[in-house]
Structure formats: structure tokens, C-alpha cells
């Protein structure tokens, strides 16, 4: 394979079969509206935190959905819970509870402290 000049790096793919989806499942079990996200970015466009730092609820939603939990784990605490996103979300996702539950889920499922 090497002679073709490229390899498929193992780490680049979202390994959907092996990723940990417990965080996602925990959230949708307790806040079913999380499923309704269409990734329009309305939440992150108005986000008080997103103005200053890399913090996008849309991005976190998608990553958690795919079981890519590394960024969400460290990034969620940047949320100020101000609630603007909840007022904007066209799909009625209870975004504040999503953040709240996600923090809880990481506490619950991670062996190390969040």
C-alpha cells in the first residue's frame, strides 16, 4: 500500500462501531428533544461564550451523537447557561438541559472527574 503514497490514518475516521454512545443515549433518554437538532447553528450564532472561544453547541451535539466525546468533555464547561440558544432553537431543543445533562453524564460515566 505504501507505494501509493497514502494510507488511511486509523485515527481520522469516526469509528462509529467502537465509539462510546452512552453520553448521547443518556441525554436523549432524559431530554428527547435533543434528537431534533438539525445543526442549523442558530444556537452557536447567538452564543455568549462562542463569541470569545471555540464553543459551539451545534458542534458538541454532533460530536456527542457520534460518540466523539473528547472535545465535548472538556468544552462543555465553557457554557454560561444563559439560555439565548434555547430561545432561538427552531427545533425546540431544550439546549440548556442538554448541556446540563451532558455534564452530568460525563460525571456519571467517566472514571475520571470532569
Amino acid at each position: 500500500m505504501d507505494k501509493f503514497g497514502f494510507t488511511i490514518s486509523k485515527g481520522r475516521q469516526i469509528n462509529y462501531d467502537q465509539n462510546d454512545r452512552r453520553i448521547y443515549n443518556y441525554i436523549i433518554e432524559n431530554e428527547p428533544s435533543f434528537r431534533n437538532c438539525i445543526a442549523c447553528g442558530g444556537c452557536s450564532g447567538s452564543c455568549s461564550a462562542g463569541n470569545f472561544t471555540r464553543f459551539s453547541l451545534r458542534e458538541l451535539n454532533i460530536l456527542i451523537n457520534r460518540g466523539e466525546n473528547d472535545l465535548p468533555r472538556t468544552n462543555l464547561k465553557k457554557c454560561m447557561l444563559c439560555g439565548k440558544c434555547t430561545l432561538i432553537c427552531p427545533r425546540g431543543v431544550n439546549t440548556r438541559n442538554v448541556v446540563f445533562l451532558a455534564k452530568q453524564a460525563f460525571k456519571r460515566f467517566d472514571s475520571y472527574a470532569f
Partner: peptide, 28 residues
Amino acid sequence: RGKVSEASETIDGKIVVKVEDTLAGRPL
């Protein structure tokens, strides 16, 4: 691609839109 979240007005009458460029993954 991004739903406009809010719009405001500058002193010289321009409109500032706040939106996430979802494909670039950054607020715009």
C-alpha cells in the same frame, strides 16, 4: 449554511448579522 441568530444596527445604519457558519464551524 447557518441560521441567522440575531441582527443589530450600527450607528451608520448598517445591519450586523450574527450567525454560525456551520460548515466552517465558526461564528460569523
